[in-house]
Amino acid sequence: MEQLLFFLMAGGMVAATLATIFARNPVYSAIFMILSFAATAGLFVMLDAYLIAVVEVLVYAGAIMVLFLFVIMLINLRSDELEGLKVNPLMVIAAGTFLGLMSKAVSDLGPAVQSRANDLEGTPALVAETLFTEYAVPFEAVSLLLLAAILGTVVLARRSQDA
């Protein structure tokens, strides 16, 4: 049952990601990417990271993808500007090398991890306790980062006078 669920989610995630990359129309890409994020949220639930699964759906599949779709509609590409992949042999070599190194790293995993899952459950209470005690300073830094992003967005989006 667990295996079936995992391979269903993993297959869905890989297929949706492939469709995102290959779709000619950016709107289809965005919609397939939402599917990919939904599959990721399912995998997070399988890893008992409940809070992260909810945040993934709300922030990634919700807020970020709405932003993407909004900008795609704002830019409104003409249909002759849609294009697919532009593949260059160097890119294939780079991606293949990365995948090979990654597989090598995974097959040589060290002793800090175990083969059996621990009983960690990412409930909101547990994650919040760690977030607001041990990671309180980084948390405040993230709020400053978001403020800086908002200011930067407003400055960039304003129509400049000299343009």
Partner: peptide, 19 residues
């Protein structure tokens, strides 16, 4: 790793800045 590589392929092979 597979999904990361697919994302890498997307970054390298697509020419639309949004993609």
């Amino acid at each position: 790793g597979v999904v990361f590589t697919l994302g890498l392929c997307g970054v390298m092979m697509r020419r639309n800045v949004i993609l």
